[in-house]
Design a protein around this nucleic acid. Structure first.
Length: 136
DNA sequence: GCCAACGTTGGC
DNA sequence: GCCAACGTTGGC
């Protein structure tokens, strides 16, 4: 049973287009325990929305975990986790934060409840709602 | 172990 | 660019 996630990135630092261009990206640099726990819980095959923070403020695509349980290569202490992801598909319609906030079924998701969490989990129901909003 | 100060994140 | 929210740090 795959789990579902949402990964935030600032598009001017590393956006969806960068991930597509590279074919595979390492999700590292996370220094928040809750986000770390989510990263550590990911398994190969899990899917994640790719969300543009600071600019755009919308989910633009879906990526898939290609390597799980990696030690963050940018961390000299070896305590922090990372994963690798591959782009799966761009959403037919981007789903904005405003739309997510306006949807009562998404009011309880980690993205909304914990606004500054950079790696959030979504329930299968929440995932399905967003997929529907994206035109999938 | 508490809590004030500080730094960072991210929506607006 | 501002500021609220939150996490972390460090003095006591």
């Amino acid at each position: 049973m795959p789990r579902y996630w949402l990964l935030k990135s600032e598009p001017f630092k590393y956006g969806w287009d960068n991930l597509v261009a590279e074919g595979e990206g390492t999700w590292d640099g996370v220094r928040n325990y809750r986000a770390r726990n989510n990263l550590a819980a990911m398994e190969v095959g899990d899917q994640a929305f790719f969300y543009h923070s600071r600019e755009g403020l919308e989910i633009v695509g879906i990526c898939q975990v290609s390597h799980a349980g990696i030690t963050d290569p940018t961390d000299p202490t070896g305590k922090w986790a990372a994963v690798k992801v591959k782009p799966l598909k761009r959403l037919p319609r981007s789903v904005t934060l405003a739309q997510i906030k306006a949807e009562p079924r998404l009011a309880e998701c980690e993205l909304i409840r914990l606004g500054r969490l950079s790696v959030a989990e979504l329930t299968p129901d929440e995932w399905a709602v967003i997929c529907q909003m994206a035109g999938l």
